[in-house]
Design a protein around this nucleic acid. Structure first.
Length: 969
RNA sequence: GCGGGAGUUGCCAAGCCUGGUCAAAGGCGCAGGGCUUAGGACCCUGUCUUUUAGGAGUUCGUGGGUUCAAAUCCCACCUCCCGCACCA
């Protein structure tokens, strides 16, 4: 499968892998990425640590690569950068995988063997969950090293390290102390046989045991309650009848203190939802038909009617009928009206009419009927009814409003009313809650059918706490968030976030300190761990023993609270070391930038802010979040089933890390999805190889007297540096790469063309300077190749240790820039004329504008820059001046010149105004070599005012400054 | 519905933030040429219309507006994509 992917077909031209290996060894030999506090300013950048249940693929590389570029850039800019990495062992999927290995699940084992290339002896160890995590941990780590990520590996940890457990316990005790951890009920998928919650990996066929909350509405018949389960409690106002299945034998059961009539399946389900259910009798559906029940909250009684679409295993086995808004109900009513013969005690049906209670744009009074017609449905057994229901439900849910006949809920949107009505009916005791598995039956691996169980001692993080929310909102508005659009999204998430279950009953992780039956859930133990990187370094060095660590240790390090001597002696750390741990924390915290994928905005990243704000003082709150989109493969989403997942390390082996880094970075700006394809990688490799060749050519040289084109290319280089720098600062890495890699090429080409035409051999030094800056700027992006280029340029040190180039104002020569622009545009004009006339030129003559025109140009320019573009005014002004009075002969000149000027961008106008006119005759003489080189013909340059000029066609009079007249023969 | 993104010349895609160097980068495709026994690969040239003088015309989802100047800013509208939950 993988081999057929064209991406994995190598078009090997040079040995990237060994070049990369060489530089990697140098970096590690120099301990380049190890960061300890010093006198420099620090920069702490982090990325969400990986969950090691499989090797990483190219898509995973994006966030890490972005962060690494950020880290490398800041390092070159003079910061003491800390970029650490940990591994998130916490969670349930690995547990499920290991159980499948124990059960000898060949599908999974084959995947390990062929897809992930895990050796057989390792797979055998996978029956132990931690071994899976350990294996992929190493695998991922190797990949990160190969990718050239500048990570300080001394700070590595896993979330099941004993000291990390202590840290998480400390975190949760703090949260509890602040009243942010609360207890309540929570439904879970559950295996009745194992007496355990089930996750996707515990079920046969890996079915996610997802479920939906239904509202039970209690209809009353005498002392009995006939409950119906609905997703749409707000439609209680539109109920016209109840449905029973005539063929069902219902149970009469005592549910807590009430007598319910329900299907036996429902009785079972209720038992798991903490209800006391005792069966007391039976009653058939047919017996119920024709009876009248009271609708809760409405002064009304309705009939019970028969319908075959009602299923025993769905809900309660009874259904409330809302024919105006539920296609099933509408159709069942129609069916019944057509065929009443079967049932004895059926009431008159003519009075039962759909009761419309929701208004939705684009739908009539009875939307259910609209849908029936639209889908061409003729009976309640028609499978299209499902689709019709789904569509109408979505439309009404998002776009519907309740009508006047819904009492105090009138005018509310369905979205709001749904919750409000539910709460209202619940409060009056006329409702209850039922959970229903979405894809039943879900079978546990033990074979038993799963149910939904209500756990009543579940722990939650109370993200609905209003003060907490408010605090988070205001910090989000102060934080730096890239890209800016995401800020809104964060605020939105904060608003709709509610209590979140923060512990589970199995999986790897830390136990809840006050209730050891629970394991802290993986999204909750990964919110403030960046602080732990400080401690991990000391743990790894054997300087901290988790056994002796207690809460006071963390209080001391993070809050500077407590007695140094006592805590030091309790935790068996020397006071000096404890002090330096604390100082180190104070040095590196807060997190300066957190990089992450977009999918983590609604959960991890928001929790990250929430928890930091809850636990740490303001000075330690995170400063910046950078969010990126995902990676596509040839324009398509990567997925196992498509077979288009490329393991990162395979790709590195074939293309080298740099090509992959660049391909990921160059194809999209932050928020967009990056498209990865063979074409792009090939292009990049070509580009890098060409650049590498160039770097071998140029050597440092003694300074020469700079010519105009030298000063020009140097000016352009300074502009490149400013542009690239500002792009990176905004994390617009694609833009930066475009500047560095591609846009500058046009300039370089022009320079080489000029140099070549003049047969110059003395510009190696200039080119060396240019390439050095360029390579330095490339090094955060393509660190390996940049080192190689750097060394070929004759440097003995590492480019990754060099400084980020700073634009040198002195080297910006605006006059040269103007001059070269003049040359370039004139040359283009010549080319154009030759193209249009299709002539083969023998001789070219160029005429520059007369001095009075130059004067006039400058005056006009000055006025235009000042904002005056009134032609009449300008002409008057020019005539008034003796130097420019000749304008009378050619009044059109003013208009043309104004247009010329206006069609320049603002900064070019300014710079022309600033430096004054270039000496056009002198500059244009430079064309001679270019023309000779390209057309092998001669060139003459005259001024329009030259008495002795050669001008057989009287072209010279059309000359304007920056727009010389041209004669081609 | 809410939140976010997008609509560019045959296709993919840059440009939009910061209006002018924009008939609009780059790639693919296509046409011509070179190379080759041939094909592929590679290299060069061209690729909106018109034009034997550097020009003119019409284009960037639609319709308005602002401006000397709009793919770019503002307003309205149309169409498409993603998310809307306890799942890491």
């Amino acid at each position: 499968m993988l081999l057929s992917n064209p991406f994995l077909e190598s078009d090997k031209t040079m040995d990237w892998v060994s070049i990369e290996e060489k530089w990697r060894q140098k970096w590690y030999a120099e301990k380049q990425f190890e960061s300890d506090p010093d006198t420099r300013r620090k920069f702490f950048v982090t990325v969400a640590y990986p969950y090691p249940n499989s090797p990483q693929h190219i898509g995973h590389g994006r966030t890490y690569t972005l962060a690494d570029v950020h880290a490398r850039f800041m390092r070159m800019s003079g910061y003491n950068v800390l970029f650490p990495m940990g591994f998130h062992y916490t969670g349930t999927p690995i547990l499920g995988m290991s159980r499948r290995v124990q059960e000898n699940d060949m599908e999974l084992i084959e995947a390990f063997r062929t897809l992930y290339k895990v050796p057989d002896e390792k797979i055998r160890e996978f029956s132990e969950p931690v071994k899976i995590a350990d294996y992929f941990h190493q695998e991922i780590k190797e990949g990160m090293i190969e990718m050239g990520y500048s990570i300080d590996w001394r700070r590595e940890f896993t979330t099941i390290d004993p000291c990390y457990n202590k840290f998480i316990e400390w975190q949760f005790k703090k949260l509890k102390e602040y009243g942010l951890v609360i207890q309540g009920t929570h439904p879970v998928g559950w295996c009745p046989k194992d007496q355990n919650p089930v996750s996707q990996h515990d079920t046969l066929g890996d079915v996610e045991p997802s479920f939906t909350e239904y509202t039970i509405i209690k209809f009353r018949y005498d002392d009995y309650i006939l409950p119906t389960a609905t997703l749409r409690p707000e439609t209680i106002f539109g109920v016209t009848n109840l449905w029973v299945n005539p063929d069902t034998n219902y149970e009469i059961a005592k549910v807590d203190n009430e007598e319910w009539i329900i299907s036996s399946e429902c009785a079972t389900k209720l038992g798991f939802l903490n209800k006391k259910v005792t069966k007391t009798g039976n009653i058939t559906g047919t017996e119920l038909v024709g009876k009248k029940v009271k609708i809760p909250e409405r002064n009304d009684k309705i009939f019970i009617l028969p319908a075959t679409f009602v299923e025993n295993d769905n809900g309660t086995g009874l259904v409330m009928s809302v024919p105006a808004h539920a296609p099933f109900d509408y159709q069942a009513l129609e069916d019944l009206k057509k065929n009443t013969g079967k049932y004895a005690n059926l009431p008159s049906l003519s009075e039962i009419k759909p009761l419309s209670i929701i208004e939705t744009e684009g739908y009539g009074d009875i939307p259910a009927r609209d849908m029936i017609e639209k889908f061409g449905i003729d009976s309640q057994d028609n499978p299209k009814l499902e689709d019709a229901t789904k569509e109408l439900y979505a439309k009404e849910f998002y776009g519907g409003k309740l009508k006047q006949n819904t009492g105090k809920f009138a005018q509310k949107t369905v979205t709001d009313a749904k919750e409000d009505v539910k709460r209202w009916v619940l409060e009056s005791g006329n409702a209850d809650i039922l959970y229903e598995l979405n894809e039943s039956p879900v079978r546990c691996r033990c074979g038993a059918e799963c149910v939904v169980k209500l756990l009543d001692n579940q722990w939650f993080l109370n993200y609905s706490n209003p003060e907490w929310k408010e605090k988070v909102h205001s910090w989000i508005n102060e934080m730096k968030i890239l890209p800016e659009e995401i800020r809104n999204e964060f605020n939105h998430v904060v608003d709709w976030l509610r209590e979140r279950a923060c512990a589970r009953q199995h999986g790897l992780g830390t136990k809840l300190p006050w209730d050891k039956n629970w394991i802290i859930e993986s999204l909750s133990d990964s919110v403030i761990y960046m602080a732990y990187y400080i401690i991990a370094k000391y743990v790894n060095a054997g300087q901290i023993n988790a056994e002796y660590i207690s809460d006071s240790f963390f209080d001391y390090v993070f809050f500077d609270k407590g007695d140094l001597k006592k805590i030091a002696s309790d935790s068996k750390i020397t006071p000096e070391r404890l002090e330096s741990i604390k100082k180190e924390f104070q040095y590196y915290y807060p997190v300066n930038a957190r990089h992450s994928g977009r999918d983590l905005v609604p959960n991890h990243l928001t929790f990250f802010i929430f928890n930091h704000l809850a636990i740490f003082p303001k000075k330690y709150w995170p400063e910046e979040i950078v969010v990126n989109g995902s990676v596509l493969m040839d324009g398509k989403k990567m997925s196992k089933s498509m077979g288009n997942i490329i393991p990162l390390r395979d790709a590195i082996k074939i293309h080298g890390a740099d090509a992959i880094r660049l391909a990921i970075l160059i194809s999209a700006e932050l928020l967009q999805d990056a498209d990865f394809n063979q074409e792009a990688v090939r292009g990049i490799k070509n580009k890098l190889e060409n650049m590498l060749d160039e770097c071998t050519k140029y050597k440092t040289a003694k300074h020469i007297v700079l010519t105009q084109e030298d000063r020009w290319i140097q000016s352009r280089l300074q502009q490149l540096i400013s542009k690239a720098t500002s792009s990176i600062q905004k994390m617009r890495l694609r833009e930066a790469l475009h500047h560095i890699l591609y846009e500058f090429d046009a300039d370089l080409q022009w320079y080489l063309r000029r140099v070549e035409a003049k047969n110059r051999t003395d510009c190696s030094g200039i080119l060396h300077e240019i390439f050095s800056a360029r390579v330095a700027m490339m090094s955060p992006f393509a660190p390996y190749m940049s080192e190689e280029m750097w060394s070929r340029l004759g440097n003995s040190d590492l480019v990754s240790k060099s400084s980020w180039p700073i634009p040198d104002e002195v080297k910006i020569d605006l006059l040269s820039v103007q001059s070269e622009t003049l040359l370039n545009t004139t040359l283009n004009d010549i080319k154009n004329i030759i193209k249009v006339t299709k002539m083969s030129p023998k001789k070219i003559t160029i005429y520059t504008a007369a001095p009075w025109k130059a004067k006039a140009y400058q005056k006009i320019l000055e006025r235009v820059v000042g904002g005056d573009i009134n032609i009449g005014n300008l002409i008057k002004l020019l005539i008034a001046d003796k130097e420019t009075e000749e304008i009378k002969k050619d009044p059109d000149f003013v208009k043309k010149t104004v247009n010329d000027i206006l069609s320049n961008p603002q900064d070019e106008r300014d710079s022309k105004n600033k430096v004054g006119l270039v000496d056009e005759i002198k500059v244009l003489s430079e064309l001679e070599s270019l023309i000779k080189n390209e057309y092998s013909i001669g060139l003459q340059v005259f001024s329009e005012s030259d008495q002795n000029k050669y001008d057989p066609k009287n072209k010279s009079r059309t000359a304007r400054p920056y727009k010389p007249a041209i004669l081609i023969e």
